[in-house]
């Protein structure tokens, strides 16, 4: 039983991270119908920014400020940095292609992703950076929940992910910007005619999605310790898959998809073998695509003639 609960915790942690990345994909797809392949690399840059802030405060071993303050600084810096990067990418790589075929921005996104990875490789080298979280949040600091002790870092990840998702849901559901985003997602031309500023809405969407990815990057650094220039690719792929499984364009769908994949991976590794993690996730993807192509919580796209 303990084992099972342990896997649930593992799955939640992983799932939370995937969900945050998936949210960024979903938001952008919703407004632009674009799969932003560079999203994973924005997440990677966020993780590096967080590492930079950590080092600026004196490195993992000797922090010059209290831990909560450092953490906050890391999150804010990563969110801002990634957000700005996302906006820049949109402005220069995607905006010129807004009226082109569906394939064009996808390929540009591939190019941007490749460029970012190698730019980071050039500027920062190939060395893996380690967050070494246990130097400032000891591994053994745990919270006892029943028979199990969950490490503090994981709780931090789960709580942060959940909080951000709730905040995002409120943003999309209750604010003016959220309404604008939904309107643009539904019918861009009509929204424009209703006086919604398309460019600003899209910029805001990219900013928010990329900021979420940046925060996810820092969270991953805290829990899984390593940051390298290649981490964006596989995480992006998983986040992508999560968004699709949950229903791309749907915010609760991205969350559900992320959790589902996180759980699937944890349980596969625990009960079957970690060799088959990716295969099982692929299997889930194919099954969902065959049974319910719009995703679990997605709404069928109406084909307007």
């Amino acid at each position: 039983m303990d084992f099972f609960v342990q896997q649930v915790v593992n799955g939640l942690t992983l799932g939370g991270v995937y969900a945050l990345i998936a949210l960024g994909y979903s938001l952008v797809y919703g407004v632009l119908k674009l799969l932003n392949f560079a999203h994973g690399d924005v997440y990677m840059v966020g993780a590096f920014i967080g590492f930079g802030v950590l080092t600026a405060f004196g490195g993992p071993a000797s922090l010059a400020a209290p831990v909560p303050l450092v953490l906050l600084a890391m999150f804010v810096a990563a969110a801002l940095g990634s957000g700005v990067l996302g906006v820049v990418i949109e402005r220069f790589a995607y905006r010129p292609l807004r009226d082109a075929t569906r394939i064009a921005p996808l390929i540009t996104a591939l190019g941007v992703s490749f460029f970012l990875q190698n730019a980071v490789l050039l500027l920062l080298g190939a060395d893996v950076r380690t967050y070494d979280t246990s130097a400032f949040i000891p591994v053994t600091t745990a919270v006892d929940v029943g028979p199990l002790s969950i490490s503090l870092v994981r709780i931090l990840v789960i709580v942060a992910a959940a909080a951000l998702m709730v905040a995002l849901a409120r943003l999309v559901g209750r604010t003016k910007l959220g309404r604008a985003m939904r309107a643009v997602a539904f019918d861009r031309e009509a929204a424009q005619m209703m006086g919604v500023d398309i460019d600003r809405t899209i910029v805001a969407t990219f900013f928010i999605g990329s900021a979420l990815a940046g925060v996810a990057g820092v969270l991953v650094g805290l829990v899984f310790l390593q940051v390298s220039h290649l981490m964006g690719f596989i995480a992006g792929l998983k986040g992508f898959t999560a968004a699709v499984i949950g229903g791309i364009g749907s915010v609760p769908g991205a969350m559900l998809g992320g959790l589902l994949i996180g759980m699937a991976e944890s349980f596969t590794a625990a009960y079957i073998s970690s060799t088959f993690q990716n295969l099982i996730v692929f299997g889930i993807l194919i099954t969902v695509m065959l049974v319910r192509p719009v995703g679990l919580l997605g709404t069928p796209e109406l084909n307007k003639v």
Binding site: T108, V112, F114
Partner: peptide, 18 residues
């Protein structure tokens, strides 16, 4: 540099002459 140029090539080609 090769990889950078490859990525840049994709972006430039698509935005300029898709």
């Amino acid at each position: 540099t090769r990889q950078l140029l490859l990525g840049a090539l994709l972006v430039v080609m698509m935005t300029w002459r898709a």
